[in-house]
Amino acid sequence: MTAQFASMIARRPALTMGMALALAIAVVALLPGLFAPQPPNAIDVGRALLPPSAEHWFGTDHVGRDVYARVVHGARVTLGIVAGSLALSALFGGVAGTIAGYLRGWSDLFSGQLVEVILSFPPIFLGVMITGIIGSNVANLMLALSIVYLPLFFRAARSAAMVESARPYVEAAQVLGAGEGRILFRHLLPNVLPAVLTQYIILFPLALQIQAALGFLGLGVQPPTPDWGASLQESKDYVLYASWTAIFPGLALVVSSLAVILIGRGLQSRT
């Protein structure tokens, strides 16, 4: 068992490390209270901007909140928003792309053009625009992020569906008397899914960046909810003499991105 595990690490070190990291981060995000019992929003102005110590591992911020508690509790908020909005994107983009790739014709042309329009905006600009128009709260932020990444899921699913549609099992299903809906959902979608999942892994770090950037611009999660991007924003005035207020939320972003990138790399170099 241990030997097996060791050989797995040796064979696919990136994947194993990425998975281990992601698992650890997921556990922290799901059960923050277990790792940081202190409340993330407890203000204690008398103990503001203290450097890291045994009592406050990551120090305290400008209103005396424990940075460690805010980073740990922020994991659920930040990563949850990214994971959730990408899942929404993958669902709608994936299904629409599969339909377009299978049916082709005018619906494909129309949705393809619509997607091109979205793609022509830089993601951060589009995110600012959407949250700026409809207001910045968690639901709107998620909606904005899903719209930003929908085209990429659409494209990935569409091209996979086009390849799969040409395979004989689709014709075989038609010969059996299966309707379009059945062919799409029972036959094509499961075969398009790997392409969508790959896209999900590729886009996760990018979406995390955009989420943090929007948080930094104040267009994301509103205070006092702990969020890594928002924490970076709050720390910007103190970063010169209380660097820990920025370093630890930033590090959390880097490590989370790294975990997903490692998984992606590991899956890519499949032997």
Partner: peptide, 27 residues
């Protein structure tokens, strides 16, 4: 009904044999 040339392509890789055989009867 039809039997295809390529048995590697004509069966959906993500559907179990039993379900593949049952599909027509179910439909």
């Amino acid at each position: 009904q039809m039997v295809f040339q390529d048995p590697y392509g004509s069966l959906n890789p993500r559907i179990r044999i039993g379900a593949a055989v049952a599909e027509g009867m179910r439909l």
